[in-house]
Design a protein around this nucleic acid. Structure first.
Lengths: 139, 139
DNA sequence: TATTGTTATACTCTATAACTATA
DNA sequence: TATAGTTATAGAGTATAACAATA
């Protein structure tokens, strides 16, 4: 199997595992992703759209669904009342932790590697990360 | 940044890049994924559902959309007329290649690595692949 | 006027349940 | 009866366009 096929398979398994972890808490993958993000610190709607690289109207609906379940709250920013800060609630924190706990794939997979291998992998990932520089003449 | 965060970032970038490549050809990510799969060899509807780990009714709709664009065809299997084999058309082949060509991320990222590094990465990916053995008794 | 966010709308993705056709 | 696939339906994800509120 080619290295590119290996990458595909890993990503496929990763995505599926996250989706399952989310659904175990009654959330969609998109909702869980957003909830975990908000759990790391309050965000404005615009910041969330930037984080998820999606349209603001999409974030509006996702946040509305999370809020309707009591997992997050939207509050107007006192300094600029156009913006709304989204924060996680206690119930949201609990759900977020449940999702992360259920999402065992990364820890389990990384746990298969020895310390030196983890350092190798980290170095390789750092090298393949970051923005694409340009079209590659793979000829 | 932790190794797990590095994995998250890589997967996020990978998914986004595939989605963009698909949309450049007027397809959704799911449609493009299916089309590429069919391009590797004709499949029955059930096989496609197994490949994508999703419900058969979902495949029915995805294939119907691809077929309505003339990218694939469904034909009854002469030996068991319940099953239908899905094959790619010439137009579908062209579109599939366009998607793969646009999906430059894997080649570009792998291209940043020296040969020895690619072998390292391949070995590490092999080690972290395969079904989870962990504490989850799949019940 | 520009920016932040929401709402209306339309399309796709996806699963469940009910259905058809074949075995 | 069991299997392969489709259709009806419903909820969710997503983007575009139109809108409201604030700057």
């Amino acid at each position: 199997m080619s290295l590119e096929d290996q990458l595909y398979d890993f990503v496929f398994a990763y995505d599926a595992a996250f989706e399952r972890a989310a659904q175990d808490s009654g959330l969609s993958g998109a909702q869980a992703c957003l909830l975990v993000q908000i759990g790391r610190g309050s965000r404005t709607m615009g910041e969330l759209a930037a984080d998820l690289v999606c349209d603001a109207s999409n974030v509006s609906q996702l946040v509305r669904r999370l809020e309707s379940r009591g997992l997050v709250v939207r509050e107007p920013d006192p300094e600029d009342r156009r913006t709304r800060r989204v924060s996680i609630t206690d119930a949201g924190r609990e759900t977020s932790r449940a999702v992360e706990k259920r999402f065992t794939l990364p820890a389990e997979r990384v746990g298969r590697l020895a310390k030196a291998e983890r350092e190798q992998l980290s170095r390789l990932l750092a090298k393949v990360s970051g923005p694409e520089v340009g079209p590659e003449p793979t000829g």
